[in-house]
Design a protein around this nucleic acid. Sequence first.
DNA 1: CAATAAACGAGACGGTACGTCCCGTCTTCAG
DNA 2: CTGAAGACGGGACGTACCGTCTCGTTTATTG
Lengths: 219, 219, 219, 219
Amino acid sequence: VPPAKPRLRATPRLRPLGPHSRTERAVLKAAADLLVAKGAAAVTIEKIAARAKVAKTTVYRWWPSKIAIFMDVFEQLAPKRLIRFPDQGSLEADLRHVLRGLLRLLRTTAAGSALAGMITEAQLDPQAAASFREAFIARGRVLGRRAFDRAKRRGELPAGFDAEVAIDMLSGAIWYRLLLGHAPLDDSYADSIVRVVAAGIRSAPESGARARLALGSSS
Amino acid sequence: VPPAKPRLRATPRLRPLGPHSRTERAVLKAAADLLVAKGAAAVTIEKIAARAKVAKTTVYRWWPSKIAIFMDVFEQLAPKRLIRFPDQGSLEADLRHVLRGLLRLLRTTAAGSALAGMITEAQLDPQAAASFREAFIARGRVLGRRAFDRAKRRGELPAGFDAEVAIDMLSGAIWYRLLLGHAPLDDSYADSIVRVVAAGIRSAPESGARARLALGSSS
Amino acid sequence: VPPAKPRLRATPRLRPLGPHSRTERAVLKAAADLLVAKGAAAVTIEKIAARAKVAKTTVYRWWPSKIAIFMDVFEQLAPKRLIRFPDQGSLEADLRHVLRGLLRLLRTTAAGSALAGMITEAQLDPQAAASFREAFIARGRVLGRRAFDRAKRRGELPAGFDAEVAIDMLSGAIWYRLLLGHAPLDDSYADSIVRVVAAGIRSAPESGARARLALGSSS
Amino acid sequence: VPPAKPRLRATPRLRPLGPHSRTERAVLKAAADLLVAKGAAAVTIEKIAARAKVAKTTVYRWWPSKIAIFMDVFEQLAPKRLIRFPDQGSLEADLRHVLRGLLRLLRTTAAGSALAGMITEAQLDPQAAASFREAFIARGRVLGRRAFDRAKRRGELPAGFDAEVAIDMLSGAIWYRLLLGHAPLDDSYADSIVRVVAAGIRSAPESGARARLALGSSS
DNA sequence: CAATAAACGAGACGGTACGTCCCGTCTTCAG
DNA sequence: CTGAAGACGGGACGTACCGTCTCGTTTATTG
């Protein structure tokens, strides 16, 4: 009786060993442990493999880069309610809710080091950088856009408002403290950056046209 | 009675040892060239030394880390007028002026790659990270504080306003695009992030007390 | 028609991994070549690796020190008949046979430079010196003891004779000329030092007791 | 008007320049100290200069190689009576006297490490090796020949006896233990090797002609 | 007693080799 | 036939000394 099917597929990807295999779990566990114990800088594929008691080749077989491992670590740690967050009644409340949750995740789990590791690694390997942008950043920004879409439906946004720069600013503020480490990623920081962005949007009613022009250049 | 004569010599002064020597210039030139040609990831101390036609040990003699080289490259490229910028009449104008100049610098010279390289390297080496924060970041933030100090004197800021989070946001927005590369660091981006921050500050008159509390934890 | 061929290759069997591999042979060949061409002083691990067309890390993977490489080079060159030499009828004849063979080996192959290299390197690295003494010297002295054991069975040795000093003298005489290079390691030298040692042993019949005391401190 | 030279100084400073200066003494002291403290392997010219509080250039000005320094250290330590030793009545007594004194010197002072350092360094630098052979070894062998010359006058030696191999054997036995360090260079070792060589010479009366032929190729 | 020349300290410099870490690929062999 | 194990070529790291050099400062001798 063959319990493990060969998993022949037309399209590649997906784990032939089946999802949540021992190998996958061991590798992600090892990576997460190393991230919290030593920080992103000390995480190498060799150490992950050694700690997971898995051959280095096995790691390379399933993950094309360190970034891919970090993305999986992050995903495992992110609670579902963060992604599908409930409507909080206003743009500012929505953003505050999401950012508080995100910062708590970065602060209290391996997710912070994992994200820092992704950013660092993306600087070193253009190939990996592309997958990082497409598979991780893009999906994260969708989360932010959801809040702005709700606000638009509520009529909170000036006409022609482009959310991209706002998302850049919120993300950037987080990255900055995450990478620099000079100040904590706590709730008050989330509240502060959300307040500035929300107020900045509200208080520019007649600048909508200018904003559209100015923001139009962003991706 | 002058006992120390001016010491006329046959060889007029081929190279002064120590700082500002031929060596220092050659190394910084080589590093800048490599940064623009290949990007920060491809810059290694060995390649810098080779391109500068200098022994690797000489590089290590003068710079303790790659970050230190990048900081010197950056400093060499930054025009003085960026540092001592003239008063533009308002907070928003001041910030816009500084950020436009900074983004132009990052966009058009090796300074952008140098900064990206510093951030990346700081993730890999805690020792270097410290010198980065203290010798580079700290000095850069002083630049931003100057604009907010002027604004305070003009009465543009609510009572108890803390500039640190605002600086985090502006810096972060720049880092984010610099590291991610998904959108350009152009003038319109500078204008947009400045507008949001400036408007966000203006439109929170009664939130001064709250802001002080919230922002008090930063720095 | 089988779509998956059995992997027909141009070079049918490139290298078996592990010991006796292409790598091992190439490294030892390169080391031996460098020893005869330039002498022990010019042999560096980097040059060995370069000449063997092998990565430096591969050399370090298999040999912990330069001494270890030299020992393997020596062993490869030493003919088996030198180790398991036949009984020549008398102590003097046995010793003469072994030493002539040994000196020929040192004189005509890379073994001489290899031994000189081992001695030199042992002075520079205590760790390596230990392995040299235990893995190389100890085994070499066993060879000498074999001759003295036979002599003892023949009754050629005075009671209580200790072979260690005799072995020190024979070995030392060889090392001296090997390292100093002021005179050849030829057959007549082998004969001379053997004659002196053998005669010295024979002609001290009543000094057995004294010899035992005197020699007791050695080894 | 100073009729006599001032010459009164805090530090007497007899001969600041040239040989026997403060510099020379400081360098040799530093070298000797390092030799006993860390062994020959740890002695580098940089460390000697640092410990002597002397510029590296100054060391290079007066000594062409590390061997030259070691030779001077050795010479400073060797007592004159060792060189001009009194007649002890027989070859064996003469040799025993010299070797005991030499081994004591090697055992109890920096001279042992210095000699080991010379031998090692001579393997690495052919230029230095030549000066070592000519300025150090040659002079040392003269010492041995003095003992054999006296024996010849006493009629202790067979006709045509060549002392060179005997000297090689005695020197070699010492070098061997010095370099290998597996057994002590104590008086009993001196006695043992002297006894073997002396007895070996005595007991070969009719082998004089053969010995001359055999030994003729040496030196 | 000034000028000269040497020794000197200080240390920058180009260079070689070291031994280590990690990369990503490739080979072998056991299940 | 596929996987785990790990050998492999390779690049870069940061360090230790090498021996040479330049430079400016004493120090001793000499003109």
